[in-house]
Design a protein around this nucleic acid. Sequence first.
DNA 1: CAATAATTGTAAATTATTTACAATTGCAAA
DNA 2: TTTGCAATTGTAAATAATTTACAATTATTG
Lengths: 105, 105
Amino acid sequence: MSKKESNKDLSFDFDFLDKLVVGIGEVSQITGIPTRQIRYWEEKGIITSLTEEEGKNRRYNYENIKKMLLIKEMIDEGYTLDASAEKVKKRMEMIEETLNKLTKK
Amino acid sequence: MSKKESNKDLSFDFDFLDKLVVGIGEVSQITGIPTRQIRYWEEKGIITSLTEEEGKNRRYNYENIKKMLLIKEMIDEGYTLDASAEKVKKRMEMIEETLNKLTKK
DNA sequence: CAATAATTGTAAATTATTTACAATTGCAAA
DNA sequence: TTTGCAATTGTAAATAATTTACAATTATTG
C-alpha cells in the first residue's frame, strides 16, 4: 500500500465527519431525541442548524449532533435545558481549544 | 474528568459511526454521487441499503457510504463499475479482517 | 456499426419535514 | 393549592424530498 493511500485511510474518518450533514430524521434516529424536541431546542436558540433557506429541510453537522447528545446527557442528570446548554457550550469550547493545541503545527 | 467520562469521549466516534444511518440525499451530498446513480448501483446489487420496507426511504450506514466512496475512486481510476465493486468488496473484507485481529481480546 | 454497460430524465405517487397555533405536563415559589 | 414559567408534545395543511417505473441517452468494447 502506497504512502498516499495509507494516509488517506488514516485521515478518512476525519474527512468524513467534516462532510457529514444529515437531516432531522436521521439525527433523531441517531440520538434518540424526538424531532419535535430538536425543533424546539432550535427555536429556543440552543442549537443552530445549517439550513440555508427557510422552509427547506433542516441540516445538521457532526458538531450539532454531538452537542445534542451532550445536552441530552446533562438533562438526564437533572440540569435544566438552559443550564445544560450553557455547560455543554463551555465544554465544547474547551475541547475545541485542546484540539487546536494538539493539531497546531 | 472521571475515568468513565474519559472513556466515553474516546469511544464516542465509534459509537457514533455505529448508529449513523442517513438518507440518500445526505449520502449524495457527502459523496458527491448523484442520487440517481446511487439508486442505479443499488438496483444492480452493487450496494445494499438498510431500507426496511419497499416504498420507504432508503437508509445507508457508514459501511455503505465508505463503499460508495471507494467505488467512486476506482471508477475515476478507470475501472468498470463491476470491477470496481469487486475490488472494493475484497478490500473491505481485508480491512474488516485486520480490524477483527486488532480488536480481538 | 452492434451490443452491452452505465448513466440520466422524469411523471405520478408516496413519504418526510416545515411552520404555526395550541394544548399539556412538570416543577418551584407564593 | 394555585400561579407562573419552562419544557415538551400534538397536529393540520403546505411543502420538500424520495420512490418506483418506464424510457432515453451516452460510453465503451468487439
